[in-house]
Amino acid sequence: MLVEIIEETKGKDGRRILKVAKENLIELMTELKKQGFNHLSLITGVDRKDKIEVVYHLHNFESKKYIIVKTETLDERVPSVAGLWSSANWDEREQYDMMGIVFEGHPDLKRMFLPENWVGHPLRKNYDLKKVQYINMDEDGNDYATFDPGDGW
């Protein structure tokens, strides 16, 4: 493989874990897809306080092998892999909703579960749980978030 890998380790169950700079992410993912990793199981985000780690779990149905790709970002921005695996579309939207990671090049990056005007991203370490937000539905059936306890639930 020509892509520069920062670190390669093995997990407890023998899965390869590749760590890569985010500039080389798309190049590595394209290479892995060519090798037959045609299923993106999930995308997760890890909040390390000073940086955010994004983890991709890939599966190869032919050889029945898993591979884990990790990348880090300081400015909450990561290139999108939605062009390679279509399932990344919703996975990345979920990570944007919960962790606030902006996936550059995503076709339709909006919140997955919470209303569009919800303040903050709930799974981040710096999310303030004391500022309680409520959700209500307007007449058209669209959700909106509010800080007013009399307006929603």
């Binding site: 409520y134 959700i135 209500n136 539905m137 929603g152 639930w153």
Partner: peptide, 10 residues
């Protein structure tokens, strides 16, 4: 959940 509450009310 807060998202379900308006539906439950409806």
């Amino acid at each position: 959940t807060k998202k379900m509450a308006p539906r439950l009310r409806r």
